[in-house]
Nucleic acid binder design. Structure first.
Lengths: 217, 217
DNA sequence: ATTTCATTCCAATGTTTATTAGATTATTGA
DNA sequence: TCAATAATCTAATAAACATTGGAATGAAAT
């Protein structure tokens, strides 16, 4: 084999290491979870409904590709994304998938089928409305994730507590609920609950990672 | 298994279809080739040093993921990227790989090790200089690829013809050579040839795909 | 109509990968 | 020191994938 060919093979093999790391649905789910902040293996395993052993194996794959890093704290080992670029890449990957795969488009329609026309989708306008208090931006993820990072002006009520804390929310203004991203169902559940209770909820597909990826271009 | 879990699995599996499509080095090489324009299977197979059967199989994978489309013309079937977004994704993927993988960084240093300080790396300045004629931007890819798309102000001399056409190039100004992208070795070879012949060549890592991806942000 | 060429389809091979179970390491708390 | 916990490592198996050869398709040239 000629020399140029060997060099090329080497280069593409390296890039394919990243491709392999994102070729498994469970690893993608783990990446999305890690976009919300660092987490222990057990947490990651629970949230993604797999065994700790399997989670550990998948995480090792990703660490070999240098997409994630670890930190030990007592008995726990915390994983985090190695770089913001990984979160941006996740956003681009799932956006591309949404553009290209009809099956995915259909599955997603199933999740957020209400017309979101009440609240504009573009970021500046939404933020302007949130700043003026014309809408309430609601983060329904667990509190820890909210504390790591959240959308500007967002208020935190984790989905578990939402039913008990409905009185904190206004009925006269739209409530824009978001969660981890388009594949997380928490905002969907929150919207359904709020609608039953007489609020005017809107489902925002984006999570923090999507928001930031959009901001950095 | 609960319903939410089933939905999530479905969603991540869909995204992983794209991940799988880019998890093989040969498929990545094919994508990079297709970034230069549509090509027949045989061309793709030759350029990537694989059998036509194997190329066909890889291309089918990518067509299943809707990343490429086909067109028949006589005996040939031409493949092309299904969307500009695929080229942008390729650029982001290899950029991420270059950021994360030390092995890849080292392999790339080996390719372009000269200090490129003569010519600024930022696009606006380079274009300004090209417009004024202070540098010559040289496209060393095959003519067909140049005709599909090329950098602004670029002149085309395919690598094969370069030795015979040296008289077309100036010795008093830097020559900025580029090819298909950072993993293509044609520009490297061109720079080495030009340097031996007494020109002042500079290797531009980016190809058309990288250039356009950068422009669209 | 037959041959040729480019390509795909199908079947068979060896090689990776996902997943699970069992043993092992590192840390904490008793 | 000993037990409990969190996580990893190793080994094993089954499923998925890459690769190759042979047969089949579809358009073009003779």
């Amino acid at each position: 084999m000629d020399n140029a060919r060997q060099i090329k093979n080497l280069l593409y093999e390296q890039v394919a290491r990243i491709g392999k790391a994102v070729s498994s649905p469970k690893r993608l789910e783990l990446i999305e979870l890690l976009c919300q902040g660092e987490k222990a293996v057990e947490t990651l395993a629970q949230e993604s409904s797999i065994s700790m052993k399997l989670a550990s194996a998948h995480l090792r794959e990703m660490r070999n590709a240098n997409l994630v890093e670890t930190r030990r704290e007592g008995k726990n080992i915390f994983y985090r994304l190695a770089d913001k670029g990984v979160a941006d890449f996740w956003v681009m990957l799932h956006s591309l998938a949404e553009d290209r795969l009809v099956d995915l488009q259909m599955a997603l329609q199933h999740i957020a089928m209400q017309p979101n026309d009440l609240v504009p989708n573009d970021r500046e306008t939404l933020m302007k409305m949130a700043r003026r208090g014309e809408v309430v931006v609601l983060d329904v993820r667990p509190t820890e994730e909210y504390l790591v990072k959240h959308l500007p002006f967002a208020r935190s009520i984790p989905l578990d507590e939402l039913r008990q804390r409905l009185s904190e929310l206004p009925k006269d203004r739209p409530i824009v609920a978001y969660c981890r991203g388009p594949y997380c169902l928490m905002a969907k559940d929150a919207v359904e609950l709020l609608r039953r209770e007489g609020f005017s909820p809107v489902h925002l597909r984006d999570g923090v990672a999507e928001w930031e990826a959009m901001a950095s271009r």
